[in-house]
């Protein structure tokens, strides 16, 4: 795996038609760290994720990967450095777990180059890492939601990325699988950006948190500084009690209902 890279957005703006979705947002992730994106629905998290991943081009501003403009990278060049896991992936194709994970090697191979033993080794390693080694022949449509996300994570890791970008990877999953997925991500040494819904999970797994509201960056910093009762009331419109957990020493957010 190549050295960790730094990823940054400089005053990026993105519009859908005439509607401004991302409005002059600047965020950055230090090499090897995890940045969490939080915010209410429609705050522009997913769009910012797409800009950071280079899937959309910003109307204004730049996304920089290792101090180089992301638009200057070739598609394959970028895919060898940045891997993306979407909210939920769907397909009609009758593919197996192994087929999907092998897709991760796509950017490392030219149009007709043969599959190598090095590719095999990487695929095996990632399967082991997400605990799916003995299910490689299983069909995608027989997997549960949590297993599918693990397969997609394995596919992303098979890209041998330096930066991993996840768009609410734990949506629709039960709490055990949410923690499962985030633990796996936490153990990786890559630079990570993750959009996340659950504030407690964000506090537990992120080094820094960026708060978005109506397309604008509200604030950004370490969880303990960011996740205040005032911010939660202002941005999410919910009264909350924030304390330090006696169990894991991290922030614990309780919503007062």
């Amino acid at each position: 795996m190549s050295a960790h890279l730094m990823l940054a957005a400089n005053a990026v703006r993105w519009l859908a038609g005439r509607k401004v979705i991302v409005d002059g947002v600047s965020v950055s992730v230090e090499p090897g760290q995890t940045l969490g994106l939080i915010g209410p629905n429609g705050s522009g998290k997913s769009s910012l994720i797409r800009l950071l991943a280079g899937l959309r081009a910003p109307a204004e501003g730049d996304v920089m990967l290792d101090r180089r403009k992301i638009s200057g990278f070739g598609r394959r060049e970028l895919a060898r450095r940045v891997a993306v896991v979407e909210q939920h992936s769907m397909t009609e194709a009758n593919v197996t777990v192994l087929d999907v994970v092998k897709l991760g090697r796509t950017p490392h191979r030219s149009a007709l180059s043969p599959w190598t033993s090095a590719d095999d080794e990487i695929v095996e390693n990632t399967l082991r890492r997400v605990g799916l080694t003995d299910r490689r022949e299983q069909f995608w449509h027989t997997l549960s939601g949590g297993e599918r996300q693990r397969v997609q994570l394995a596919r992303a890791l098979a890209q041998s990325p330096s930066v991993l970008i996840l768009d609410e990877p734990t949506n629709h999953l039960d709490i055990q699988h949410q923690i499962d997925i985030l633990r796996l991500v936490e153990d990786l040494s890559v630079t990570t950006v993750v959009a996340i819904h659950d504030l407690n999970l964000a506090a537990r797994f992120c080094d820094r948190i960026a708060v978005l509201s109506e397309g604008k960056l509200v604030t950004c910093g370490p969880p303990a500084e960011i996740l205040t009762e005032k911010m939660i009331a202002d941005v999410f419109g919910v009264e909350a009690h924030v304390s330090t957990s006696a169990h894991h020493g991290r922030l614990h957010i309780q919503f007062l209902m």
């Binding site: 797409r50 598609r75 979407e86 769907m90 087929d99 999907v100 897709l103 991760g104 796509t106």
Partner: peptide, 11 residues
Amino acid sequence: TFGEDAARSLG
């Protein structure tokens, strides 16, 4: 297999 964005992110 998983759509256009997935294809794009694979290079």
